[in-house]
Design a protein around this nucleic acid. Sequence first.
DNA 1: TAGATTGTTAATCGATTAACAATC
DNA 2: TAGATTGTTAATCGATTAACAATC
Lengths: 221, 221
Amino acid sequence: MPRRDGISMSVIRRMPRYYRYLSHLEQTGVTRISSKELSERMGLTASQIRQDLNCFGGFGQQGYGYIVSELRKEIGNILGLQNTHKAVVLGSGHLGQAVSAYLKFETKGFQLIGMFDNNPAIIGTSTLCDLIVTDVAQLEEFCQQHKPTMAVLCIPLQAAAELVERLYGLGIRTFWNFSHFDILRQYPDVTVESVHLSDSLMTLCYLMNENPGSAAKPLRF
Amino acid sequence: MPRRDGISMSVIRRMPRYYRYLSHLEQTGVTRISSKELSERMGLTASQIRQDLNCFGGFGQQGYGYIVSELRKEIGNILGLQNTHKAVVLGSGHLGQAVSAYLKFETKGFQLIGMFDNNPAIIGTSTLCDLIVTDVAQLEEFCQQHKPTMAVLCIPLQAAAELVERLYGLGIRTFWNFSHFDILRQYPDVTVESVHLSDSLMTLCYLMNENPGSAAKPLRF
DNA sequence: TAGATTGTTAATCGATTAACAATC
DNA sequence: TAGATTGTTAATCGATTAACAATC
């Protein structure tokens, strides 16, 4: 797959949605699709779809459209879903459990190799993803042996500073972040992708106030 | 608080972060801040902060800056956090539990009044947010009585079509969505805010490939 | 070939940044 | 008053949309 530098985040953030939608189409038995039809189904413009895809290469056939399975595979390669970055989950409460099940069953690109917590009540119990919750005291030992490259943070704010420092010390430079850890901004060389429940919820609260009746306000899907 | 129409989503999505950061500052004992200092701390430009805030009104004092507590309160009002939109959570697995705890303890703007599931093993059990999980068979009865206006979808894809139809029939027009329910696009008058774990994870996968060593690529916090 | 649809360039639109007059 | 910093207008930048030549 051709790859170029300097793709904008706007484009990158749309790629997973294309991937999802094409997977859906493929499962439905659609083998071929034009940018026009895809745009109508997804609520975008055909122009945008063609522009987005052509950041990475020409995957279509003029006069014909795109072959669904091929395009899906190309986008999977662009996203790097064929990789198996080793990941650990910190915090094995409900959120950690939900995310780990997700990591295990729903996505490619990562391999979940460990779950940690400091709560004696759940250390040693097994999880939805078939891993035993390990005492976070053994984090160093575990990471030195297994060398994960990504950490999922499902921990309370108070625990973050110390834990991030330890993970950083262990060479982890990529974080998937489920809380408001401005702490991570202090490290210049880490990659962070955040999922902020409270920001999303506050945004929804705003939208409800703006559209008290039920005026349409569809967002990204 | 002055309010105007046609605020762009780019601006709206930044407001919760301002709110969070100002809360943090207030707790830290900071009483006054200039757009310049805030911008340095948050990693934005001072210009953008002033532009954003002035979409809603002039909350600062020339030559002085902004009073932290006042500005925080204003943004809270803009977001509508003083409201208590009644909400129900559909699906009481780990994700539903995590989100409901969040709704209960971490945010304003909503009041969680019910949790539902179809799994007999958890119906009747109590949750972190002190609600008993109700059989989803009783959804109609419950909603007609309590009239929630927002529903949180923490359910598997297969269950979505039927459940959304039922919720829509019960007058619910706002959804907080944790899965890929393109189904919701079929309703022209609903407001949907989505949190997509897999999109976020695929984006992170892409970023890891682009920055295999550890090149800095900080995103929003 | 004719029709369709891509890939790509040009035009438009919107969002961010810079500049500065107003004013505390 | 002088210095600082806002509110706001103007300039720039980037992202989206439109148009169309290339071509299957």
